[in-house]
Amino acid sequence: MNPALKPVLVVLGWAAFNAVLVLLMLVYGENALFIGMYGAAVGLALLVAGAVFLGRRDPAGQGRRTVAVASQSGLLFALAAVLAGAGLIFGYWLTGFAIIPLLAALARQRKEVLPRGAAPAATEVSTLHSQRPQGGDGGPVAKGVKAATATVVAAKAAGWWRRRRRSSRT
């Protein structure tokens, strides 16, 4: 019935309903400061809608995709952030220490991604017990190809956004 419910419309519709509620607030005479606060949140939702809209198009992202296969940088960035924050409590010298994990994270970050267009090899299901069907219609190679293909297709959408985040973070 509704084959073309676009994701951006979901976010926009949600923001629009919120906007109606903001307007209703004017009728009830809430303090303008706090109507503005709600309005700002609607603005945030619109930003999300905008990002979704751009992410859908992504003409620039073609062919520049990369896939991350490790994420040590996550821990290092988090450590840097929390150390910097702790500097506010225990003294600014701690903020200085935050630079170490920050630099380490930046250095790590480049090593975590595969070269452009490449995809990770298939990995075993590592679990408490392995119970994947033996044999089947594909050896590890076939599985790997399939998985790699899937990853690259998926990475299309992710790549652009990830780079955006990274560039805003550094």
């Binding site: 296969v69 490790a70 040590q72 595969l114 990995t123 190679v141 190809v145």
Partner: peptide, 28 residues
């Protein structure tokens, strides 16, 4: 599309299978 090579002889870093890194530095 990705070449068959990437699956068998992958270039660059690969996900590690050794805990705890396979968990704590996972992208899964």
């Amino acid at each position: 599309m990705t070449s068959r090579l990437t699956a068998t002889e992958p270039p660059g870093p690969q996900p590690t299978h050794e805990p705890p890194r396979s968990w704590l530095a996972s992208t899964d």
